[in-house]
Design a protein around this nucleic acid. Structure first.
Length: 437
DNA sequence: TAGACTGGCGCC
DNA sequence: AAACGGCGCCAGTCTA
């Protein structure tokens, strides 16, 4: 079994190659969306100023707070809106609570969403493409759990949703090269599967072994709908409290506590695991993933209860999130030779091979067209760009490597999970419209 | 004018 | 007082 150190070392060249590969952007589409969104923002701005009676900087939370809670005399405390360091909150969550009190508020929410899309994605991304219309992120391996991060630009937070007022979602501007398809492969509920494995919880293991839908099963056990059960399952991963659950589900804390009690009655092993993990973490001051990745959590030693509780939540989450990160890294390593992700001669421009390095050629390395490439990693998801005639073969390889990465030959002393890993695979011409295979 | 901080929000 | 883990980027604001 590889250690987390060995995993990261083997991953390094693969990440550098993915960065060079980049991902193709439909610049024209983003330019078109930009016009649409600008128009809509203009409309909203006028209507909002009309509702309020004067202009102000809509992008300034402090000015908005002043207007809502002083000028318009909305009572923040009554609506359960919190005071931050400077002023009462104007977060989307807060505005939702008071939107019935003034006609401008719904429009401000809409404005915020569109302004976010425009300033963070629609405007900057086209400016970052190379001569092949591709953008190149940087993957860093420096998070506290072992996950990757992506920056300049961050391609791990591209919006998934579509706004009614915008023609197409941002993800549809992430496209495959001509003659290629994008293949997206994501682990299904990998973190809950890891909890099932690490906690030895019989119920949860049984659910995954039978191939059942965990959220549905949980819903039946708790006597709630699937949506609620999903929130509870996620809450478990994050070390939630009754308060947090009640806030998310918008239900009384007492009701939330009932759900939690029932949950731990159903999944006794999970309860034990959480208690044991917290206890060990408090004693040791650190936690580890299955592959030995260690995280020191200094908050665990704090005399301040709030800080210490934060440490405990992080201690519960880290082995889960971190083990999931280890596993997808292993699958990236396993897929590397199959896809010639590194040392792929096709990506080297012969012109540059024998000459001395030329400055700024980093992304001019040519011809990237029409070769199999791993291009994105989004925590539990990998995206590939694959020539049309190789798609079927690629899908098989990807599924095989990803699903079996943690279930190899036990004789080799490798990790064998108590539950199957399942990968959902979709194929399409862009990152939005994809068809499940 | 640059950097740090704040509030906010996109993703898993 | 806060209340659910992990990130990076935006605009506004504050500060050196």
């Amino acid at each position: 079994m590889l250690t987390s150190y060995e995993i990261d070392k083997k991953l390094e060249p693969i990440l550098r190659q993915m960065e060079k590969n980049g991902v193709k952007i439909d610049v024209q589409l983003l330019e078109k969306l930009s016009l649409e969104v600008s128009l809509k923002l203009q409309e909203l701005t006028e209507k909002i100023f009309d509702d309020i009676g004067h202009q102000f900087n809509l992008n300034s939370p402090s000015q908005l707070s002043e207007i809502l809670y002083k000028e318009l005399k909305i009572e923040p405390r009554q609506s359960g809106i919190k005071y931050g360091k400077q002023h009462f909150s104007t977060s989307a969550q807060s505005l939702e609570k008071i939107k019935h009190l003034h006609p401008s508020i719904e429009k401000i929410l809409e404005y915020r969403e569109l302004a976010k899309l425009k300033s963070t994605y629609i405007e900057p991304l086209p400016k970052m493409v190379d001569k092949n219309q591709r953008i190149h992120t940087h993957y860093a391996v420096d998070t506290s759990t072992g996950r990757l991060s992506s920056k300049n630009p961050n391609l791990q937070n591209i919006p998934t949703y579509k706004k009614a007022s915008v023609d197409r979602p941002i993800r549809s501007a992430f496209i495959a090269e001509n003659g290629c398809k994008l293949i997206k492969a994501d682990y299904s509920q990998i973190e809950l599967r890891i909890i099932a494995h690490m906690s030895h919880d019989r119920e949860m293991i049984k659910t995954f072994q039978k191939g059942e839908d965990i959220h549905r099963t949980t819903a039946e056990e708790l006597g709630c709908d699937r949506r609620t059960a999903k929130v509870v399952n996620f809450g478990i991963i994050y070390g939630m409290s009754a308060y947090g659950l009640s806030a998310t589900l918008k239900i009384p804390a007492e009701e939330a506590q009932l759900f939690i009690d029932k949950y731990f009655l159903t999944y006794e092993g999970v309860k034990k695991y959480i208690d044991q993990t917290s206890q060990d973490a408090l004693e040791n001051g650190y936690v580890k993933t299955m592959f030995g990745r260690k995280r020191e959590i200094k908050e665990l030693k704090s005399p301040i209860v709030r800080v210490r509780n934060f440490g405990i939540r992080a201690a519960i989450n880290t082995p889960v999130q971190g083990t999931a990160a280890d596993i997808i890294k292993l699958s990236m390593i396993a897929l590397n030779p199959k896809f010639q992700i590194t040392n792929n001669k096709q990506i080297l421009n012969p012109k540059f091979q024998s000459s001395k390095p030329i400055l700024n050629t980093k992304y001019k390395i040519q011809d990237t067209a029409k070769s199999s490439k791993m291009i994105l990693q989004v925590h539990d998801e990998l995206v590939f760009e694959i020539p049309n005639d190789q798609v079927d073969e690629a899908v098989k390889i990807i599924r095989d490597k990803m699903e079996n990465v943690a279930c190899p030959d036990p004789k080799l002393g490798e990790v064998k999970l108590k539950v199957p890993l399942i990968v959902d695979i979709e194929v399409g011409n862009n990152w939005d419209e994809m068809k499940r295979i």
